[in-house]
Design a protein around this nucleic acid. Structure first.
Lengths: 204, 204
DNA sequence: GATGATGTGTGAAATATATCACGATTGATT
DNA sequence: AATCAATCGTGATATATTTCACACATCATC
């Protein structure tokens, strides 16, 4: 069965926790209780999640850390490379370009685009900025399946339409708006204001 | 009763949708069905959420857009100003400093800090970068309640400990790690890799 | 190898969240 | 003003998610 978003998120947390922990102190095995304790999750939940991706622990011992990490990477598809384009090289787009963690998850930014003629042709973080007019062509030629959208709100839907018409499979949306897409395109919204709202509410 | 995170997130979506919609075309009222349609949510859900923050619609008409926006802003605490400090002026920290949307939600970044002596004293986006050694002092003097954490992973827990010892109330965590804090401190994690995982899984 | 302590795996129960169904209310229409 | 259609408010129902409870498995110890 398709794994739910909540499960994916927890799997990520397990993976990050185990990676970090083993970097500091190599360990062979870990129990669901230890993970649960560190991440403030119910131990049963951890076991169920592991069960859901086919992991088996051993009584009285726990889980092989190595196995867990591998299984998560595999089920998440991190060992599978995803070629992506980034659209909108502003402050945020620029920051994403230099983010060092992407390749760890198989994400490869192949090319970057911007509508601003003043930016087109310039270089940024090792990329030559291309015109968004060549976007469609590029995506088709290189069979790109993922677009990272960092444009201003005003043009985000226009570009989204153009993207979906190329047959793109997923859009990682960093613009603070909701995008309309066909049902088979995944949109993952990264709205910073959501986090802010939770904080503002808590501080009130 | 305390509103749940899921509700807060939907309230934000309503708010954003209504702000954007009214900017394009001023309207007086809107129905739960219209909102639901646009945001791909169940209409009942919308009504329940509105009910939860004390909004009353009128039969056959819907809700006063103005009222809805006000109520959401108020319940979220956006009209209440929150003074914050930002720690770690790297790529991401820099991008956040120039993000124009914060004040709309009442967030005011008052000062920025970095541990790197090479950065201390320099200016960035209108701020003079301060040494993290003066962090505690500053937070206490100015009664800061929110810290935005954009440091490398290695120092994030150390700084978190220092922050919580000053009595800070919330940490907006942009570092890709889990932070340990006392129960009364809110941590909002903004892990970019969570989004990436959802995408990678979908594309697999 | 028997025994006890500690962990897993999982069905059952509890909780949380979303949807349905429908009476009540309002505005438009005749 | 009587009727109709659209919309809200909300209890009941359905679904999803988390937690509990406990049988079964494994290792350490005697």
């Amino acid at each position: 069965m398709q794994l739910k978003r909540v499960v994916l998120e927890r799997l990520m947390r397990y993976h990050r926790f185990l990676s970090q922990t083993t970097k500091i102190k190599p360990i062979q095995t870990i129990t669901s209780a230890q993970i649960a304790e560190a991440l403030d999750i119910d131990p049963t939940q951890v076991r169920k999640d592991f069960g859901a991706i086919g992991l088996m622990g051993i009584g009285r011992v726990g889980y092989q850390v190595e196995d867990v990490c591998c299984a998560i990477r595999q089920v998440m598809g991190f060992d599978h490379e995803n070629a992506a384009v980034l659209i909108g090289v502003g402050q945020l787009g620029g920051a994403l370009l230099t983010y060092p963690g992407f390749e760890k998850y198989g994400l490869m930014i192949e090319a970057v685009f911007d509508s601003d003629p003043a930016k087109v042709g310039r270089r940024k973080a090792g990329y030559t900025i291309r015109s968004t007019r060549t976007l469609k062509q590029y995506i088709r030629n290189y069979n790109i399946r993922l677009a990272i959208l960092c444009t201003p709100v005003e043009v985000s839907q226009t570009l989204t339409d153009r993207l979906t018409s190329t047959g793109i499979k997923a859009i990682w949306n960093f613009t603070p708006t909701s995008l309309n897409v066909p049902a088979d395109v995944l949109v993952r919204n990264e709205h910073i204001s959501l986090g802010l709202s939770e904080i503002a509410y808590h501080l009130k």
